[in-house]
């Protein structure tokens, strides 16, 4: 096991210990805090698949967070609480929307791609704001958490371990994916797309499928997020949220699987706990911090852990 994989494994074990430790020290709210962290970690991993491995700078990734959330919220609004159904809808609809957005935006590259993905996400945000049935800009309460048979999400600890299991699953799927033939194509596109085309890969279709996989995975994160907050609003899709997820990927280290998880942990704790406790104007600190990370620590926190190169 490489050093980074070992660190990641230790991190996951620590996450598994959060509920008993939180109970022992009488601070159950840490279960909530870290559940939220892990949900964002799944979203960040999904973005990293296209951003870090595929080189696609999608600035609209929060759109799928919102789609996943509404895919749970809207059926629940009509009294459908079956979680298997809701989560399937979340994944399928997110993939379908990613297909549409990708089909338009992947025809372009560079600045265009960034602006278009951002614009489409914002479009969905405004759409959410203008549909009054589902609360418009106020959003709506989730009547009940997704019903998953014997797995009772109303129990905070159970829900916590469901999210942890899905995080581990996302890491495993991501690991298989990036090392598969498909993954090699996606990484080759990032490295040198003209070369990929010259040796015979029709790159567009591979990029599009990668874009869909990332969208689907983030949709699942959205389905988890709405269960966590028990509330859904268009704010889930706001462009600053997309920026947030992207920041997690960079902060942790893009093009690695552990990086987004680490980035999610650090950024969520900074934004949710540490900075707000210090000053209400914490964004004035976070902003320049982000600039500094970009300028001086591009490889992210994971880059601080040296790793032997395997051929």
């Amino acid at each position: 096991m490489s050093r980074r994989a070992a660190v990641l494994a230790i991190g996951l074990v620590l996450l598994a210990l959060v509920p008993p430790v939180a109970a022992a020290i009488g601070q159950p709210f840490y279960v909530d805090v870290f559940r939220r962290v892990m949900i964002f970690a799944i979203a960040a991993i999904s973005l990293d698949l296209i951003l870090g491995y595929g080189g696609m700078v999608s600035f609209g990734h929060a759109a799928y967070l919102g789609i996943g959330a509404y895919a749970v919220g809207i059926p629940a609004f009509y009294g459908i609480h079956n979680g298997w159904l809701q989560w399937t809808i979340a994944i399928v609809v997110s993939a379908a929307v990613a297909l549409l957005i990708g089909a338009v935006s992947l025809r372009t590259s560079g600045v265009y791609f960034i602006m278009i993905t951002l614009a489409f996400a914002q479009m969905l945000y405004y759409l959410g704001n203008s549909v009054e049935e589902y609360g418009g800009d106020d959003g709506m309460r989730l009547a009940a958490r997704s019903a998953l048979g014997v797995v009772d999400l109303r129990n905070g600890t159970t829900f916590y371990y469901v999210v942890l299991a899905l995080l581990v699953l996302s890491l495993a799927v991501g690991h298989r994916l990036i090392n598969s033939r498909f993954g090699m194509v996606v990484r080759g596109v990032r490295s040198n797309e003209p070369r990929m085309r010259a040796i015979g890969f029709s790159t567009f279709r591979y990029k599009l499928v990668a874009f869909m996989v990332a969208g689907a995975m983030c949709g699942l994160a959205g389905a988890l997020l709405v269960n966590h907050t028990e509330y859904v609003t268009p704010e889930f899709m706001h462009w600053t949220r997309s920026g947030d997820i992207m920041f997690m990927v960079i902060l942790g280290g893009m093009g690695t699987l552990g990086g987004p998880v680490l980035g999610a942990v650090v950024l969520r704790l900074l934004e949710d706990l540490i900075l707000p406790a210090w000053t209400q104007h914490w964004q004035a600190i976070l902003g320049p911090f982000l600039v500094l990370i970009v300028l001086f620590a591009k490889r992210g926190l994971v880059g601080l852990l040296p790793e032997r190169r395997d051929g």
């Binding site: 992207m246 920041f247 976070l286 902003g287 320049p288 911090f289 982000l290 600039v291 591009k298």
Partner: peptide, 14 residues
């Protein structure tokens, strides 16, 4: 472009 997007995003927050 990625660096530019992130750094100017940081400027917006600021």
């Amino acid at each position: 472009h990625l660096d530019q997007v992130l750094a100017t995003f940081g400027l917006i927050l600021f």
